[in-house]
Amino acid sequence: MHRFANPNFFLRLTARILPWCALATAAAFIAGLYLALGVSPPDYQQGESVRIMYVHVPSAWMALSVYSFVAAASAVALIWKHPLADLAAKAAAPIGAGFTLIALVTGALWGQPSWGTWWVWDARLTSMLVLFFLYLGYIALVNAFDDPIRGAKAGAVLALVGFVNIPIIKFSVDWWNTLHQPASITRIGAPAIHSSMLTPLILMALAFAGYFVCVLILRVRSEIAGRKIRALRIIQAQG
């Protein structure tokens, strides 16, 4: 793993990977969107609005996976002082916050036609909203210090604290929801999903994951460039 800690090795490796990653992402997006918007059947109850699912569900998946990624990268950064893990965690967080926002907004857009309301204090929606605030707190903390390295370290501790808390928050929101809210919403998705819908969903999930990897690589590369410029400026100022 320490071989990958060398930023120059990372830059060379990702320069090779990036075009292929972008190509695969584009292909998955084209195929996924074609199947999702054109080929897959409308829902017998919800009609065409079910197609929001092909954006909503993958982004919700990504919102959670990216937070796990941030926490894992933070743990690596704290335990092994891995110089790239810090950058990866910092670079991934805004992408994850974006996915969370997309999941929340598409959820509201989907809720309006199928439940008749933009927002309900459903357990899943509420814990998604809390996750969004956790992302915002992380991003704010990382950028709150004059020294970026100090920010990254504080952020790493916070990401791990948040990661321990996510299951507790999820559990308590579930509990709160069963106490407070009458069961007014019967969720769809109880019957097994048909393959004509599952295939585009998986393709879209792959496209989202590929998009995350591509943008992450780009962001880490620009972070490395930013650190190099900073180091050069400091040398210049001292010299």
């Binding site: 809390v130 605030f133 956790l134 915002l136 707190g137 704010a140 903390l141 916070l158 604290v161 948040g162 808390n165 507790i168 928050i169 559990f171 308590s172 929101v173 509990w175 709160w176």
Partner: peptide, 14 residues
Amino acid sequence: SLLVLPLYVPVLIF
């Protein structure tokens, strides 16, 4: 407050 309030949610609920 941005860091701490989301983590207060479980205590508030119970």
